[in-house]
Every structure is written in structure tokens, then in C-alpha cells.
């Protein structure tokens, strides 16, 4: 009896793929705890209709600690976390939270309307709404009903509206 049949060969591959996926996800869980090489802040990017939404986790940040700027489709967020030296190092029993200066630049996939950007910071969670620029949005082009060339010549004089 054959172990692999041609018909089921792909299914076996799919099973393997699923297995590897699960394994990789398991590794993610393991590495989430020591925050292994994770950039700060962590952010998610969503597309909602004609707008992009960036959410960033900025615990401990007040609005005045943040510096937000945009140029050429690149959004830059920078700030300072936990002033170093606030608490002497030898007093720490455990130190897992990141500290110091940070900066992140996010390039947005499409052109955005720089003047319409909205930002909101609540409980250490930043929500940045970036509406797409009108030129980046799909535009419906109106097609005028064509008239035959010969008729147009005759109508041109009395069609001054």
C-alpha cells in the first residue's frame, strides 16, 4: 500500500505547514516574555476604508512627552521613557520595562493627507488616524456622452453655457 498518493501529497504538505505555523506561534509566546529584540513602541497598523490607523503602546507617556511629525509619507514618533537615573540601579530588584529615548519612523503605504491627521493618547495607548490623500483614493471618472464630430461642429455656436 502506498504511503503517499499523488492526490494527497499536497494535503500532507498543508498539514506540515499548519504544524510549523503552530510551532512558530509557540516560539512567539516564549519570546514575548523577555521582549526579545522588540522595537519600542509596539504598533499595529490598520486600514479602515479611506483611512489608516496606527495604534502604539506607549505606557507611561503623557501627550506632552511625545513628538509627532510627518513628512513625505513617513510618520515619526519620538519620546523619552522613564528618565534613566531616576532610581539608582542598585535599588532595582527586577527591571523589565524599557527605558531611555526612542524613535520610530513608519512609512505609510499610500499618500496621506498631512493636514487631516488626528492623534489621541489614552491610558498609554496612542491612536493615530491618517486619512488617505484625495489623490490616493480611487476616483470615479465621469464619461461625457460623446457626440459625433460632424454634429459638434454645427452645435458649437449655440452651445455657449
Amino acid at each position: 500500500m502506498p504511503i503517499f498518493r499523488w492526490g494527497s501529497a499536497l494535503d500532507a504538505f498543508r498539514d506540515l505547514e499548519r504544524e510549523v505555523d503552530r510551532w512558530v506561534r509557540g516560539v512567539d509566546i516564549v519570546f514575548e516574555n523577555p521582549r526579545f529584540g522588540q522595537p519600542f513602541p509596539s504598533l499595529n497598523l490598520y486600514e479602515i476604508g479611506d483611512e489608516y490607523l496606527i495604534t502604539a503602546e506607549l505606557p507611561g507617556c503623557a501627550a506632552e512627552d511625545l513628538d509627532l511629525s510627518v513628512a513625505n509619507g513617513i510618520v515619526t514618533i519620538r519620546g523619552t521613557r522613564i528618565a534613566p537615573g531616576e532610581i539608582p540601579e542598585e535599588h532595582y530588584r527586577r527591571s523589565e520595562r524599557s527605558s531611555g529615548n526612542w524613535e520610530r519612523a513608519i512609512s505609510v503605504p499610500e499618500r496621506i493627507d498631512d493636514d487631516q491627521i488626528r492623534a489621541e493618547l489614552t491610558d498609554g495607548l496612542l491612536k493615530l488616524s491618517l486619512p488617505k490623500a484625495p489623490s490616493a483614493m480611487r476616483k470615479q471618472i465621469h464619461i461625457a456622452g460623446g457626440k459625433s464630430a460632424t454634429k459638434e461642429i454645427g452645435q458649437q455656436e449655440n452651445q455657449d453655457d
Binding site: R93, R94, S95, E96, T122, G124, L125
Partner: peptide
């Protein structure tokens, strides 16, 4: 999720800080 924490000593005891964005 498991939030990252800091624990440090002060004169009066211990202080625990945890990042809980959102």
C-alpha cells in the same frame, strides 16, 4: 499577556510598576 514590570526598593518598602497600555 504578561506585562513587563519593575520592582525597586525605597526607604519605605518596595514599589512595583507595570506597563498596562490601554
Amino acid at each position: 499577556r504578561t506585562p513587563p514590570i519593575d520592582i525597586f526598593e525605597t526607604e519605605a518598602g518596595l514599589v512595583l510598576r507595570a506597563d498596562l497600555p490601554g
